[in-house]
């Protein structure tokens, strides 16, 4: 199994990360937002010299380095002569450093990288590859690897058709935990891309999309189950698709990342599944989802036709197993879903 693991972005974090696990095949981090941003929040903005030092350190440890430049919107700057030259210059510098792979979302960058550089070209989840047709398109542009849109993580017919349609490598993001069919997905990633990219940066009041994302789950906890994460124990069900898995979590602590690496490397986790889910970390002290009680659910999802209002499996499962953290006279306790004021 090849595990791609998030890295917070500074050398100290990389040293901690790589000293904590022997199961890491590659680490990934954002580059400098001065050239191409990324579609997610970052804790760092490493300069080229810092990337070079960290890449050398990772290579010394036998670990590959991937840079994430997966902005989903650059406002057209990439198509201007100045923008194109700047981006090409940055690619050239990263290539010179010895970066193993670059993850991008814009088809233009896939083609630029494939044509002129030695680095592997990885198509981001933010290219939303969810069909064999789209996969073929990116492969023809030069993709070395496609990270499949997690929205189809539980649609095995789609996954198998993508596998059959292309010969490039495939990668699955296991713990993003975004809402299934999230209505905010495009707007949110576009916002992040501007906030974490070359200016002008929006001076926002609040992240509306994130607040809505959390409140939707608090009001309707079945969304926590429907979200297309992959349990560590279920990786074996995906082996006929790929043996390459990506763990999300660039803004988490190293300790959190290592806990997730350990869970997915060992294909086992005892405890709260929320501990492993990246995008909803702010809810991990609100909900308890006993991972062991999800055993076997994959069999239902394998034959799921995604007509939730007729099926109701995830809703029933949520009501059965999810607990809510609360406080009583003795301190922290857990109460069943429904007795804590939720609106399901």
């Amino acid at each position: 199994m090849k595990l791609y693991v998030p890295h917070v972005g500074h050398l100290e974090g990389l040293e901690d990360l790589l000293s904590g696990s022997d199961d890491i095949y590659a680490v990934y981090m954002a580059g400098s937002p001065d050239y191409i941003g990324t579609g997610r929040t970052n804790l760092s903005a490493p300069k080229l010299e810092e990337i070079a030092i960290q890449t050398e350190y990772a290579h010394d440890k036998g670990v590959k380095m991937e840079i994430i430049l997966n902005s989903s919107c650059m406002g057209g700057q990439q198509l201007t002569p100045e923008g194109y030259r700047t981006i090409d210059w940055y690619f050239d510098k990263l290539n010179g450093i010895g970066i193993d792979s670059i993850t991008v979302a814009d088809p233009l960058f896939v083609e630029m990288l494939a044509k002129d550089y030695d680095m592997d070209v990885v198509v981001s989840v933010l290219s939303f590859v969810d069909s064999p047709q789209k996969a073929e398109f990116y492969e023809q542009l030069g993709a070395t690897t496609i990270v499949i849109d997690p929205a189809v993580n539980r649609q095995f017919d789609k996954l198998e058709s993508i596998r059959d349609a292309v010969s490039c490598d495939l990668k699955l993001l296991v713990n993003e935990a975004c809402l299934y069919q999230c209505p905010f997905r495009y707007a949110h990633f576009n916002f992040f891309s501007h906030a974490n990219g070359p200016g002008p940066k929006p001076n926002v009041l609040d992240d509306y999309y994130y607040f809505k994302c959390l409140s939707l789950r608090i009001n309707d906890p079945q969304q926590l189950i429907k979200s297309p994460w992959i349990r560590p124990e279920d990786l074996k069900e995906y082996r006929h698709i790929t043996d390459t898995f990506k763990i999300g979590g660039r803004t988490q602590f190293v300790n959190w990342i290592l806990n997730a690496v350990d869970a997915y490397a060992n294909e086992s986790y005892e405890g709260n599944l929320m501990d492993l889910l990246d995008s909803i970390k702010d809810l991990k002290d609100h909900f308890f989802i006993p991972n062991s009680e999800l055993s076997g659910a994959i069999e239902q999802w394998k034959r799921c036709d995604k007509v939730c209002h007729k099926c109701g499996y995830c809703k029933r499962l949520a009501e059965k197993i999810i607990r809510v953290y609360s406080q009583d006279e003795d301190g922290r306790c857990m109460v069943p879903l429904g007795s804590s004021g939720d609106r399901t």
């Binding site: 972005g9 901690d16 904590g20 760092s44």
Partner: peptide, 15 residues
Amino acid sequence: YMDFARGSGKRPRPD
């Protein structure tokens, strides 16, 4: 506590 106790330096995360 464990998130912070793991590292030994002043910068457990870049922020």
